[in-house]
Design a protein around this nucleic acid. Sequence first.
DNA 1: GCAAAAGTGTTGTCCTTACACCCATGC
DNA 2: GCATGGGTGTAAGGACAACACTTTTGC
Lengths: 227, 227
Amino acid sequence: MELVNAYPKLPLTVDCVIFGFDENSLKVLLIKSDLELYSGKLSLLGDIVNANEDLNKAANRVLYERTGLKKVYLEQVHTFSKPDRHPGGRVVTTAYASLLNIKHYALAISTNELNWHPVSLIREMAFDHMEIFDYAYKWLQKRIQEHPLAMNLLPEKFSLRALQNVYEAILDTKLDRRNFRKKFASMGLLIDTNEIEVDVTHRPGKLYRFDYEQYKLRKKNWVGIDF
Amino acid sequence: MELVNAYPKLPLTVDCVIFGFDENSLKVLLIKSDLELYSGKLSLLGDIVNANEDLNKAANRVLYERTGLKKVYLEQVHTFSKPDRHPGGRVVTTAYASLLNIKHYALAISTNELNWHPVSLIREMAFDHMEIFDYAYKWLQKRIQEHPLAMNLLPEKFSLRALQNVYEAILDTKLDRRNFRKKFASMGLLIDTNEIEVDVTHRPGKLYRFDYEQYKLRKKNWVGIDF
DNA sequence: GCAAAAGTGTTGTCCTTACACCCATGC
DNA sequence: GCATGGGTGTAAGGACAACACTTTTGC
């Protein structure tokens, strides 16, 4: 079947929006742009998709090549396709996002000044990456309220305070501590490890594990019209 | 800048999942597959993306070419990229979805047996279109609970019963009539037109308009962790 | 004993659910 | 007058928001 060979073809890239959490603040992994035109500007981690890999694989490869990070859980966010979005010619890009604990993933590579940047300080980027980033950030804020994504970026055992810090940083808001704790207690998805924090300069908090087993058993029965 | 010319290129298509509503049931617009291999199988409305159009434009064009439908609001759902998803060779496709009132959009074309098919009867399709369809349907079910998408497929003036029928068909569930009405009343987004249904064989219902102005003014302040 | 953060309970409000009867119209 | 679906209210339960004091630890 040679039909497909006659089709117009386009270069396809992936761009990874890697959110990280550290010192109670949300960051994003960026490099300095390769392109002269955008010299000095920050850029997402992107590269071309090869002929025989799916987008997910491409995103993982690109992330690995640019950062040395492996086995990162990436989710597809959106595909951006404005014809003029890349000054070098037409390129369609699919954005992937992830959320991880900066302390768990040492950066093996520092090419292009690869580094974590606080989300709150990002003002502009190369290409249309600011638009992609904004989209991905909104996606993340919604996503974290519906999925236990936050657990990805905490150690296996964590305190409720640490969990709350994650939500506050990502949602960029303050939450009532008592209500937050009640909420998670009532979900029945946290297992008390009977351990407590160590090396803190105040009363240590209890440590919990997230009950992935239980979570998987739930089926979401979500009917609630609201807009 | 000739960088981009050296990149590997892939054929890119769009596939439109056009949901329609008629006679209180949810349908989807499908054609018989072009391909010999899939002869007799149903297929989404898809075609190649041209070199200088963005995906959104491509989706609109493809829809127009295949159906004669114009000015349909399409939303991007997901991009599917398995290397073997098309038997004729590697093709990446981006799925777009819409929801419209079948009675408002007469099909101008009937090539490939273009037709509306009840969603509940779809069992298999050509290519990976069943997977795309399933994804789009889940997307729709979530989307309609968070956005006033349902209004797209009602006449400008509609009864609460008609609105409820939409939700019941799409969510595939029964809703309590009184609670449903209270819900929409309390939202404050429906305007009583002071008109009533005509030509019904029972007590006519009041007709409402959706208050798009008001809706646009709302900003969603949505913080509610739930999973 | 002081600083710092952990831990905890109650009340009011709102939202959701469940549920049954009368009303207006066409025929 | 009967069949069909429109329209309405209430009570109970659950979720959420607001709010302050005591406890434990390190130093």
